[in-house]
Computed example of a mutant assay.
Amino acid sequence: MTRPARGTRVVLVEDHVLFSESLELALDLEGHDASSVSPTAFASSQALLSRVLRLRPQLVLLDLDLGALGDGRLLIAPLVEAGAEVVVVTAATDRTRWGECLALGARRVLPKSGSLNEILATIRRIERGLPVLASGERDALIALARQHSRERADARQRLERLTPREVEVLGRLMLGETVREIAVHFVVSEATVRTQVKSILAKLAVSSQIAAVGLANRAGWQPPGGAEGA
């Protein structure tokens, strides 16, 4: 990966105007060529990415929350492949997501609750070819992300064992419906629904409805075809 020179071309991908303007001003005062790109101006993440790449950034300060465009993590790998250094600046506190960003090639993840000086110091270290994160911390965060990925894949495999009706029942449990409400909706007996719930718990290897819903949520699972809202 090429090392940025002094007067780095920095692109901020950020939709919070006040934060973006403050950071852009600080970067300008440091002698950088800074510009901002707001996700709200684009209809797709691909259009946003194309715009950022046309600016030929040496370093991108990337927010993870792209609003309607989704998760900023999707931009990390293509930006890195294009030769840009990526530093994620986010309000997200989930260290699993931080590790995923690092695994995708981001140099560092910084919290928005931190100081501008911390962001500027990180850029200076990147300019000088210095590490911006202790290797032990980087390794630990990436390991956490990979463990989460394995657990999520395992959860999805369990969810795939459910029958179409069990999928619908779990979807309604995720909406907070009771066994009685589910029975009324499907015009079956409560005993039938309880049997279906028991089967769901067995296939997911959990001991309660709350645990089943939690597993589905952690896996990012939604019933196919929006079954939970049918």
Rank of each mutant, 00 (worst) to 15 (best):
V10A: 10
V11H: 10
V11N: 09
V11D: 07
V11M: 11
L23W: 02
L27E: 09
E30A: 14
H32N: 15
D33W: 04
A34N: 02
S35R: 08
P39A: 08
A41K: 02
F42E: 03
S44G: 01
S44V: 00
S44Q: 01
L49V: 09
R51N: 08
L55K: 09
R56D: 14
P57T: 09
L62N: 00
L62G: 01
D63F: 03
D65A: 14
A68G: 05
A77Y: 09
V87I: 12
V87P: 07
V88F: 02
A91T: 14
A91K: 11
T96S: 12
G99E: 06
R107P: 09
L110I: 12
P111S: 15
S113W: 04
G114M: 00
N117K: 12
A121D: 15
R128D: 13
G129K: 06
G129Q: 08
L130R: 13
V132K: 02
L133K: 07
G136Y: 06
R138Y: 06
R138W: 05
A140I: 00
H148D: 15
S149W: 11
R150A: 15
E151P: 10
R152Q: 14
R152F: 08
A153L: 10
L159S: 05
V169S: 04
L170F: 05
G171F: 04
R172C: 04
L175V: 06
E181C: 05
A183N: 06
V188H: 10
T192C: 02
T192F: 13
V193K: 01
V193P: 01
R194A: 04
Q196G: 11
K198D: 12
K198A: 14
S199Q: 11
A202G: 07
I210Q: 15
A212D: 02
V213Y: 01
N217F: 06
W221K: 03
P223E: 09
E228A: 15
